[in-house]
């Protein structure tokens, strides 16, 4: 117990004594761990975004508020009769409002605003195509003279054909960022391993006299190695704490701007629900990198 305490004490003292090197090593480690978190965040956020986007692959045909029940049935039948149509579902104004409220339940001001505005959402048909690539025929029905006048003019109907390009692009970009995040994480883990390796190597050289004396007075191998491992682990521990705070701040700060493009909500919720898991994960990675690189340095430069 007292041995462990002395090892930790010596490790912290070494950390303080090499303030510049320690700061540099901690800084690189902080960058690495921040990149790891951000890569993790964007991975989950992008996955959830892709899911949201692909869920929306159906044709939404928005209807005028003035449409009569008769006109509506007629239109629905005409759509259903098309051979490429799997199903046609009517979504009333009320249903649309409910769904909208549910989607935005975290935004009370928006919902309050809706109550004053009445219900601005149009009713719609949700058409599921059998073959999503062959929707021209379905689009053609909506352009017939008898139905064209029933379409809502404010809200453009969405056809999968048009969305598809966008959806594909979003998926492509999202996958690119996911891969880029992973590659960047790996590269920075390697860089910080090398830097800590070098920091500990220099620490071994500057303290070789002290190490010799420790051996002379009968210090055990782990008593000599311990402070170096702890010193390197300390870079990881400090860096992990900074990285978690930094990335959480970045996430909260960036959320307002990102929310229109990708789904960051679930990631923020994850952060808030499992803060210990996030910190523990970062500490684990940080300590692992530190301990591994210092052991590597010692196996080459600290002969006991």
């Amino acid at each position: 117990m007292i041995q462990l305490f002395r090892v930790l004490q010596a490790g912290s003292r070494n950390f303080m004594r090499n303030m510049w090197l320690s700061t540099a090593a901690t800084a690189v480690m902080t960058i690495t761990l921040t990149i790891v978190i951000i890569s993790f965040i964007s991975n989950t956020a992008l996955t959830s975004t892709i899911k949201n986007v692909t869920d929306k692959i159906d044709i939404s045909i928005y209807l005028k508020d003035t449409i009569t029940a008769e006109e509506r049935d007629d239109f629905q039948v005409a759509l259903s009769e098309h051979p490429n149509v799997e199903s046609v579902r009517y979504v009333s104004k009320e249903e649309a409002l409910e769904a909208y409220k549910k989607e935005n339940q975290n935004n009370p001001t928006l919902i309050k605003g809706l109550e004053f505005a009445g219900n601005p959402l149009p009713a719609s048909f949700r058409v599921q195509a059998k073959d999503p690539k062959q929707i021209d025929g379905i689009v053609a029905i909506t352009q017939r003279d008898e139905y064209r006048g029933l379409l809502d003019l404010d809200k453009q109907s969405t056809y999968q054909g048009e969305n598809k390009e966008t959806i594909n692009r979003i998926v492509r970009i999202a996958n690119f960022f996911k891969t880029a995040g992973l590659v960047a994480s790996v590269i920075f883990v390697i860089i910080s391993t090398l830097i800590i390796f070098n920091t500990i190597r220099m620490a071994i050289f500057t303290r070789r006299e002290e190490i010799e004396i420790m051996k002379l007075v009968g210090a055990t191998k782990w008593f000599i190695r311990g402070p170096f491992i702890f010193e390197a682990a300390l870079y990881g521990i400090i860096a992990a704490v900074i990285a978690v705070v930094l990335s959480y701040a970045l996430l909260l700060g960036g959320a307002a701007k990102l929310v229109n493009y990708i789904d960051v909500g679930s990631t923020i919720t994850f952060f808030q629900n499992y803060p210990l898991l996030v910190i523990a994960g970062e500490l684990f990675i940080g300590i692992l990198i530190g301990a591994f690189s210092s052991m590597l340095a010692m196996s080459r430069y600290l002969k006991l």
């Binding site: 007292i2 041995q3 002395r6 006299e209 002290e210 004396i213 002379l216 007075v217 210090a219």
Partner: peptide, 29 residues
Amino acid sequence: VVFQDFKLLQNRRVGENVAFALEVSGAPR
């Protein structure tokens, strides 16, 4: 063991240098 070049820790006081030999073997403070 003592040597010609003393092998003392320059950044520690006399008392600490002597105490060092006890510290590494886990002697209580």
